[in-house]
């Protein structure tokens, strides 16, 4: 069959030649700026407090980056496959190489895009945040390196999650809603669940996993398990999408 490397090169060309690429890049850069603004806000509040009553920041310094970039990555992953269905190009695409190779090539491209987004945004936001905060005492601010790395992985996972769900659902709207639900709605729902359920469900939701990988005090899962759950999101979504793509008529 058509060589995998050639299919990847073709998918990379496709990804570069539409508007969603520069738009996503702009969003990623904007997230760093917004994250710095949030840190500056917390720092300003801290300055207004007496020294024996420090502020507790409910999140790490890259908080806003992690609100925005995983969603952007997830949407990019969705669009990489659903735009083919929406524009009708899916048949021409699937006629050029095997479906598995094409989905695999798209996975490589979106994972790489996610990795680039993470590398561009997370270190910058982390360094900028620490610089802005200086040596003010703020509880809960700052993140261990392991958590930062897990944040980066979460962005890549989000991209693959989007691609897998997009392949499964074949609709941009449906897949974007699914991604947004996993990233934003379910964490809120988990918070409303009674008894220990809220904590249990919350512990396995993607946005809460990087902190657990980093060994946070209120972590429910051990770091290695949290890491495995993160990877499982991407693996399960891609497997479901791949199976659906393989079996269905186009």
């Amino acid at each position: 069959m058509t060589a995998p490397a050639d299919v990847v090169a073709a998918e990379w060309l496709k990804a570069r030649s539409v508007r969603s690429a520069p738009y996503t890049a702009a969003v990623v850069v904007a997230s760093v700026v917004l994250s710095a603004l949030w840190v500056w806000n917390v720092a300003t509040i801290a300055d207004g407090r007496p020294p024996d009553d420090p502020v507790t920041a409910a999140a790490s310094g890259v908080y806003l980056v992690m609100q925005i970039v995983p969603l952007a990555a997830g949407v990019l992953g969705v669009l990489t496959i659903t735009s083919e269905y929406a524009t009708g190009t899916v048949r021409a695409t699937m006629a050029a190489a095997s479906r598995g190779r094409i989905l695999g090539a798209k996975a490589i491209v979106v994972a790489a895009a996610g990795a680039v987004a993470a590398v561009v945004s997370l270190p910058a936001a982390s360094v900028l945040g620490r610089a802005i905060m200086g040596d003010r005492r703020v509880n809960g601010f700052g993140e261990p390196l392991s958590e930062l790395l897990a944040d980066g992985l979460a962005v890549v996972v989000a991209a693959l999650l989007g691609l897998g769900l997009g392949a499964l659902l074949r609709s941009t709207a449906a897949a974007v809603v699914a991604v947004a639900s996993l990233l934003f709605v379910l964490p809120g729902v988990a918070g409303a669940l009674p008894g220990p359920w809220g904590e249990r469900v919350g512990a396995v939701l993607l946005p809460n996993l990087p902190a657990q990988v980093g060994g946070a005090d209120d972590a429910v899962l051990p770091g290695a398990v949290a890491l495995a759950v993160m990877v499982a999101y991407a693996v399960v979504a891609m497997a479901a999408g791949g199976l659906s793509l393989h079996r269905r008529d186009l």
Partner: peptide, 27 residues
């Protein structure tokens, strides 16, 4: 070589890139 369904292309992509992407799969 097949042309089905009024040959769709992504509206945001140029004809050149549309064909280049297809061509790239086969070098």
């Amino acid at each position: 070589g097949a042309m089905l369904d009024a040959a769709p292309a992504h509206p945001g992509r140029s004809a050149l890139n549309h064909l280049r992407a297809l061509a790239r799969t086969h070098r």
